[in-house]
Structure formats: C-alpha cells, structure tokens
C-alpha cells in the first residue's frame, strides 16, 4: 500500500503550488496543470509519494487553493469506471 497524491482534475485549476512543493515529482504541462514526472506506466492522477516527500505532499494538500489534492493509499483508488 503505497501512499499516493490524488489529483481531482475537476477542481484543479493549475495554480502551481503543488509543483513548487514537489518539484521532483510534479512538473507542469503546456497549460500549467500538474504533470507527474515518474516513468511511463504510472497513474498520472495518483502520483506515488515516497517517504521523503510525504511531508511536502501533505503541505501541498493543505495549501492547494482549489482543494484539488488528497492523500490516499493506492488500494483505495476506484480504478474502474463503474
């Protein structure tokens, strides 16, 4: 059960705070929205957070002006479309 930072895209407005707090995990796409920088195959909506980034991720959750972020565990994610 790895910790993941879940991005709610319906709320995200690409304000960039999370990308400043987690510069090694999140970049910004062409329009400013957070873009997971991990290798292909990862889930770009649920960015895996390792121990050393745990605190910064928690800050990102707290400081996101749109409250578009949440910390969760991988197993909790509703991966199916139903």
């Amino acid at each position: 059960m790895r910790e993941v930072l879940h991005i709610d895209w319906t709320r995200c407005d690409g304000r960039g705070l999370c990308t400043e707090l987690l510069p090694t995990l999140l970049g910004r796409d062409d329009w400013g929205y957070p873009l997971a920088m991990q290798a292909a195959g990862g889930d770009p909506s649920n960015v895996v957070i390792d121990f050393q980034h745990s605190e910064a991720a928690a800050d990102a959750v707290k400081l996101c002006p749109k409250m578009a972020l949440a910390l969760a565990y991988e197993a909790d994610q509703a991966d199916e479309t139903w």
Binding site: R15, G16, L17, E20, L21, D59, A60, L63, P65
Partner: peptide, 18 residues
C-alpha cells in the same frame, strides 16, 4: 499577491500563501 497566482520575485507561491 497570493490570489494573483504569481510567485513574487523569488518567493514561490506556496511560501506566499504561508
């Protein structure tokens, strides 16, 4: 300044918020 969504000089956005 925070609401403007811009970093101020070298202060990043999240610091501004803090």
């Amino acid at each position: 300044l925070t609401r403007s969504g811009r970093p101020l000089l070298s202060i990043p956005r999240y610091s501004l918020t803090l």
